[in-house]
């Protein structure tokens, strides 16, 4: 194995159902329903998925939802802004824990 991540492997995702077909069917049915047009448009859902893909840092998901966003008519500007939302939340999640740091430091300090 040259690399853990091979782009061709994305197309083999369905093989995950080989030894647990019922669970796989439930997952893929659910997956399909989640991404169907609903209160949110398919384009909006693809942008959320792209953002989450970068949060979980999944190369398969980044590949799939970069293409998915483009196919749903999203612009690179929208896609880039979605990543800044991820960055703001991830960075903010670290920074907001500074409140804990300050509380503990306050308790320990004279």
């Amino acid at each position: 194995m040259e690399t853990y991540y091979n782009p061709q492997d994305l197309g083999k995702f369905g093989e995950i159902g080989k030894d647990a077909p019922e669970l796989a069917k439930k997952f893929f049915d659910y997956y399909g329903s989640v991404f169907a047009e609903g209160e949110l448009s398919e384009r909006e859902k693809a942008l959320i998925a792209l953002a989450v893909a970068h949060t979980v840092q999944c190369p398969y998901c980044i590949d799939a939802y970069t293409r998915g966003c483009l196919e749903k008519g999203a612009s690179l500007g929208e896609m880039t802004e979605a990543l800044h939302v991820v960055t703001a939340i991830r960075g903010g999640a670290s920074l907001v824990h500074g409140v804990q740091m300050r509380k503990i430091a306050e308790q320990l300090s004279l």
Binding site: K12, F28, C61, A64
Partner: peptide, 8 residues
């Protein structure tokens, strides 16, 4: 990232 597709 939906279910697998075969290349035709």
């Amino acid at each position: 990232m939906s279910a697998a597709h075969e290349t035709h």
